[in-house]
Computed example of a mutant assay.
Amino acid sequence: MVTVRKANTDDAALLSEMGYASYTHHFAPLWREKSELAAFLQQEYSLPVLQKSLQSEASSWFIALAPAPVGFAKVSWHCAVEDNGPAGTLLHKLYFLPGETGKGYGEQVFAQMVRLAKKRGETFFWLEVLDANPQARRFYTRQGLAHIKDVVFSTPSQQSTLHILGRHI
Rank of each mutant, 00 (worst) to 15 (best):
T24N: 03
H25Y: 12
H25K: 00
K34Y: 01
E36N: 07
L37Q: 12
A39S: 15
F40L: 09
F40Y: 15
Q42H: 14
V49I: 15
V49H: 03
V49L: 02
S53K: 13
Q55M: 07
E57R: 04
S60L: 09
F62N: 01
F62W: 10
A64L: 13
A66V: 04
A66K: 11
A68N: 05
A68E: 15
A68K: 06
A68S: 11
P69K: 10
V75Y: 08
H78D: 10
C79Y: 04
A80M: 04
V81W: 08
V81T: 11
N84I: 08
N84Y: 12
G85I: 05
G88A: 07
L90Q: 10
H92R: 03
H92E: 06
F96I: 13
F96W: 12
P98D: 11
G99A: 11
E100F: 15
G104C: 08
Y105L: 09
G106L: 06
Q108F: 03
Q108P: 05
Q108I: 11
F110L: 06
M113H: 00
L116G: 02
A117H: 07
A117M: 06
K118M: 05
G121K: 01
E122Y: 04
E122I: 01
E122S: 12
F125L: 04
L127D: 02
L127I: 06
V129Q: 01
N133W: 08
Q135W: 03
R138S: 15
